[in-house]
């Protein structure tokens, strides 16, 4: 019998949850689903370089319409579902849930892990896309907007996972019905949308194309603050709903 770990000390529970989530909820197969959209960012960057416009202007257009509207939500959906919804469905969430911890620690731990994965992946991919597009001067803006957008999206998808059983379906509905359809028509909805706010943050920070600034929603730094508020509210909702979760198991 090995006794390599007969002594030691317990890691803080929050750190344990983050470590567990990164290892257990995001195995190799999941990373394929995460890295494919990230690789698509580079493709969008290349497409942008072929547009007959200035590099910055073309990349701003491509980033707004493809990176922040498609790549960002799809990648975060895969990660957001993996860190909670998928575990709840499979039944292995009981290992975490049956611990004497306040539910906010569980929600925040899962969100931190998901945000680290999503933000790290997308910030690098989006910055690389900017470089490929020949708009390297916007790389920092697009990376910052990606980080804030990713953490807001992951929080929203975790909250959806705590509220509904079919988290992936409802998350898709949120992205394509609420954000894309309603958000395009109503500024009030766009103000609560990570996609619209991340895009507004990028446009405001890069000062590239004022014609892309949408009236009625904050942009630049104000959009980053708005994204942080969205995260806090979504996490508070997730934490509250976790207390009422019905863990019926995979057979149900």
């Amino acid at each position: 019998m090995t006794a390599t770990a007969t002594s030691g000390r317990a890691r803080p529970a929050l750190l344990a949850i983050v470590g567990y989530t990164l290892r257990a909820c995001l195995p190799g197969r999941r990373w394929v689903g995460i890295l494919i959209p990230s690789a698509a960012s580079l493709l969008f960057g290349f497409i942008s370089s072929t547009v007959a416009d200035t590099a910055v202007s073309a990349f701003t257009s491509v980033a707004s319409n493809a990176l922040f509207s498609l790549v960002l939500p799809v990648t975060c959906l895969v990660i957001g579902d993996a860190v909670l919804g998928a575990e709840v469905r499979s039944g292995s969430f009981t290992f975490t849930w049956m611990a004497p911890l306040p539910t906010w620690q569980i929600a925040v731990g899962r969100w931190l892990a998901g945000s680290i994965a999503a933000a790290g992946c997308l910030a690098v991919a989006f910055a690389a896309a900017a470089v490929v597009a020949g708009a390297g001067e916007t790389a920092d803006s697009v990376a910052i907007a990606a980080v804030f957008g990713a953490q807001a999206y992951v929080a929203v998808f975790i909250a959806i996972g705590c509220i509904t059983k079919r988290a992936a379906v409802w998350s898709l509905a949120f992205v394509f019905l609420v954000e894309r359809l309603l958000g395009a028509a109503l500024a009030g909805i766009a103000q609560l949308s990570p996609s619209w706010e991340a895009r507004a943050a990028f446009i405001g920070l890069s000062d590239a194309r004022e014609d892309f600034i949408r009236e009625g929603i904050p942009h630049g730094t104000a959009a980053l603050v708005r994204l942080s508020i969205i995260s806090v509210v979504a996490l508070a909702l997730a934490s509250s709903r976790l207390r009422h979760l019905r863990l019926t198991g995979s057979s149900d």
């Binding site: 770990a5 257990a24 195995p27 499979s90 995979s250």
Partner: peptide
């Protein structure tokens, strides 16, 4: 639980250590 689901990316030792961490 009856479910077969376990966190497949972990080893039994890591799973036990995780539970120990959660319980301090």
């Amino acid at each position: 639980p009856e479910d077969e689901a376990v966190p497949g990316g972990l080893t039994p030792r890591q799973l036990c250590a995780y539970v120990a961490d959660l319980h301090g």
